[in-house]
Design a binder for these strands. Structure first.
Lengths: 223, 223
DNA sequence: GTAAGTATGTTGTAAATCCAACAAAGGACG
DNA sequence: CGTCCTTTGTTGGATTTACAACATACTTAC
């Protein structure tokens, strides 16, 4: 379908690839494209997945069901992101989580390992795709590590400061705007919103930071 | 050196590779091997790294220096593990952390991207190495996600139960032995040791688990 | 078997967090 | 300008945690 072609081009996984190469993937016998309506199951816990998922449009939730039957949402994957890549390449034979469409979605399931192993001649194709995949996986790795560094801290103050220091570094200066509102920030650092607000006020009162809403400034030598 | 050959063979990054292929990497102009004594700096924050590190022997610490000059240890990488791979493949131009030898160590720095890009003909070689790398990175990804799921929980009880449910799943049953002592467990779930001990006792008193030291059993219907 | 050393469990208190309820500030729109 | 609605800040009380100190259980070496 013509449209899928355009959707593929937006996906970082296929970045830097030409039409022929996209076509090759799109028409591979190991590629399947399917529409899911909201709340339909895309992959079920226990499934033996060999395919990486691409959200061409819409979004999916990664969901875990625990021993006692409690269901918790682990991640939200929106177009044009990918999912399940870790299970395919880490030799995790059965999915430990389920994937459910969070909206009407168009999903591409790509048997990437098969496609790659059966096209050893197209070496440039191969290296482009692999480079994209490696970049995506290592970037996610960096983000996860960063989050762990933040939420590992035992107090809200430490979590906040760690988060703010990351933002300062990321945006290259002492003054910066964070990409969350208070509730979003509290969710990210895994703490209560009102407690986060209170701690920000304290930090301000102590002259450690200046802030207004999502604008922050780190004060170098708070004395 | 003959010995390096043997050390390489133990490393998952080079798993499944034959002597010729190991030799190819070992003698590449983009590969450097160096000895570091304890506390020597291997890579410095701000460096422009193009090389992935392999701990042939010994161990290194990944260290972060924050804005205020506080230094914190992010990770310990022991032989035969690798480090800095995420920076090389995620287009992070400068290292946000430093790497310091934690013991007398022998370190191999491999310009893997260069080696791979300049050997497009050796396609089998290429795919072996890439597969190993992808497996390592995605496995780490899984572990990081798991840890985040655990330490995201707000109470020690929830952290513990999430951890124990993972262990049960991993070991395929309700009875299992965890790979940590109390202090190690407390460190992993980011909580105080004595508080963890206390919570385990409570869970036992409430009939939710049975346990003795590192042996645990989940009780299905605690009423 | 016993002493010494380590790991685990228990308890009380101070500190931090969560939670809920409300106050204040900001934004959208007539 | 004023109302409605959302976001952010503030506060007090209940809950949870950290911390320290000590008790008990286990391990090891002799």
């Amino acid at each position: 379908m013509k449209k899928d072609f355009e959707l593929m081009k937006k996906c970082p996984l296929f970045g830097n690839m030409n039409n022929e190469e996209l076509e090759f993937i799109l028409t591979s016998p190991f590629t399947k494209i399917q529409n899911f309506s909201k709340n339909q199951t895309v992959l079920t816990e226990g499934d033996n997945v060999q395919s990486l998922g691409v959200v061409l449009s819409g979004s999916v939730q990664v969901v875990r069901n625990d021993y006692y039957g409690n269901r918790s949402i682990i991640a939200l994957v929106e177009s044009p992101q990918i999912f399940a890549e870790v299970f395919v390449f880490s030799d995790t034979p059965t999915m430990p989580v389920s994937v459910i469409s969070a909206a009407d979605s168009r999903i591409m399931l790509v048997g990437l390992k098969k496609i790659l192993s059966e096209s050893p001649d197209q070496s440039l194709f191969y290296s482009k795709l692999i480079n994209n995949l490696l970049r995506l996986v290592t970037e996610k790795n960096l983000r996860l590590n960063e989050k762990i560094e933040i939420i590992s801290k035992r107090t809200i103050r430490e979590k906040l400061m760690t988060f703010l220091l990351f933002q300062a570094r990321l945006q290259g200066g002492n003054s910066f705007t964070i990409p969350y509102d208070r509730q979003g920030l509290a969710d990210y650092i895994e703490a209560d919103r009102s407690a986060v607000s209170a701690e920000i006020s304290k930090l301000r009162a102590e002259g450690i930071i200046e802030s207004n809403r999502s604008q922050f400034r780190l004060i170098k030598n708070p004395e």
